[in-house]
């Protein structure tokens, strides 16, 4: 409310049960909205399908991390033990891909895990310590036991009255505007 020229962030609708939210999400998706999201205290089974989300891309980050870990591990051991300062141990060859397997395996896991976590944060645009919703009065209940659906004003299909009506017919008893 501080700046009268600023546009609100979006419309927020509160639901009491995951089933109500799931059906509302299906309706919003069918209405053709693109800039919207649902907020839940725990992942709701079937919500990705209801929202029409594609399979998460985190796997690629993890794969690239893991492949980097394995390759760099092998290169590291080859460089250290066979190239930069070779020492003959028990008459064995300077390098073979077998003896460094354990450290390479561990590096695969390490960078694969880091890739998964950083990929998740990157795809989610986190950390983000300021968000219009976090300032909203009712929204603190999202981590407790309430379920929310938010349609942003930047959505091309957004029209305040109609959007509100859609959310009300979807079963929400609290539909409010969220300030930017």
């Amino acid at each position: 409310m501080s700046d009268p020229t600023s546009q609100p962030y979006g419309v927020i609708a509160e639901f009491d049960t995951p089933a109500d939210l799931l059906h509302a999400a299906e309706k919003v998706r069918e209405a053709g909205f693109t800039r919207w999201d649902v907020f839940t205290p725990f992942p709701v089974h079937g919500m990705d399908k209801a929202m029409g989300l594609r399979n998460s891309q985190v796997g690629w980050f993890s794969f690239i991390g893991g492949a980097t870990g394995y390759t760099s591990g092998m290169l590291m051991v080859w460089y250290m033990n066979a190239y930069d300062y070779p020492i003959v141990i028990g008459g064995k060859p300077m390098f073979s891909p077998f003896y460094p397997f354990v450290p390479c395996f561990e590096l695969t896991i390490l960078l694969g895990a880091l890739g998964a976590v950083l990929g998740m944060l990157c795809l989610n645009r986190l950390p983000r310590l300021h968000h219009p919703l976090l300032k909203h009065r009712r929204f603190a209940q999202v981590t407790h036991d309430k379920f929310y659906l938010v349609i942003e004003t930047s959505d091309p299909n957004y029209a305040e009255a109609e959007t509100r009506r859609l959310l009300e017919t979807a079963g929400s008893r609290h539909v409010e505007l969220v300030e930017e």
């Binding site: 999201d37 907020f39 990705d48 976590v117 310590l129 968000h131």
Partner: peptide, 27 residues
């Protein structure tokens, strides 16, 4: 980290969690 419980976030989060579990098992 500014977690809001967004389902778009949960989707990536659950995938990351699954991958971490898959990596921690052989680990």
């Amino acid at each position: 980290l500014g977690w809001t419980g967004s389902n778009r976030h949960w989707s990536n989060y659950e995938k990351a969690y699954l991958i971490l579990a898959g990596l921690a098992t052989p680990l």
